[in-house]
Computed example of a mutant assay.
Amino acid sequence: MEGRRDRKKRQTGERIRASALELFAQHGYRQTTIAAIAEHADVATRTVTLHFPTKADLLFAGDPFAPESLAARLADRTGDTLDAFGEWLHDTIRDLGEYDEDLGRPPGEMLSLHAMRPALIAEDPDLASRAHVFYSELERVTAESLAQELGTSADGLAPRLTAYTLVGGLRELYRVDEASRDTLPALVDRVLAFARAGLHTLTT
């Protein structure tokens, strides 16, 4: 079980991240200083850098959609890769949308803050480059799981194109006009249906 010290450290880190996202959305990523984030989160500047050594880490470190999280879900799957990927997406989105007792944030607030990331990343070349590496790792993990099911190479067209479709859907979920807290589950299902239809076409 999580000890009191670890829980406090996690709470502080999440408060810093939430403050950073709010300020990034209001003033821009480049224009927001570590000092401003520290003041907004009511911590020392040193505390911010201890939790997040670089400003970019505030957007990427501890991401709930991390490749490690997906890899663990795929390793423990009971159905096929697409089912497990969909469950992982639904569960992660649900957790982001729930009331955060530790931070005292209302339902949906962390999900809304997280949804600001794509626009911030797209506007900054350095962040976009780091995001490319992040999403490429998600694609690799997914393609390897699909290849294991199909009995083929992870570099084959079917695993790679299906993985690209799934991760592309995740990347675009917050950017489409239909996106909202209420519509995200249905959008996830549409991405999965699209990927499954494509996989069927490639393997029959």
Rank of each mutant, 00 (worst) to 15 (best):
E2R: 03
R7P: 00
K9E: 10
K9G: 00
R15A: 07
I16G: 09
A20I: 01
L21M: 05
E22K: 07
G28A: 14
Y29K: 01
Q31I: 00
T33H: 08
A36E: 14
I37S: 07
T45I: 06
T47E: 12
T49C: 06
L50K: 12
L50R: 10
H51Q: 08
T54D: 06
K55W: 08
L59S: 01
F60E: 09
A61C: 00
D63R: 00
F65L: 13
A66D: 10
P67F: 12
S69E: 15
L70M: 07
L70P: 12
A71V: 01
A75K: 08
D76P: 01
D80E: 14
A84H: 13
F85A: 05
E87A: 07
D95T: 04
L96C: 06
E98P: 05
E98I: 01
R105V: 02
G108W: 11
S112H: 09
A115K: 02
R117Y: 02
P118I: 01
A119M: 15
A119R: 10
I121M: 10
I121L: 05
I121N: 11
I121H: 12
E123R: 05
D126Q: 13
A128D: 10
R130H: 09
H132W: 11
V133P: 01
L138P: 14
L138K: 05
T142W: 05
A147K: 05
Q148R: 14
L150N: 02
D155V: 09
D155E: 14
A158N: 07
A158H: 14
A158F: 03
A163H: 02
Y164C: 11
L166F: 07
V167W: 05
V167E: 09
L170V: 05
E172I: 01
Y174T: 14
R175G: 15
V176N: 13
A179D: 14
S180W: 08
R181Y: 00
T183V: 01
V188S: 10
D189V: 01
D189Y: 08
F194R: 04
T201W: 07
T201P: 00
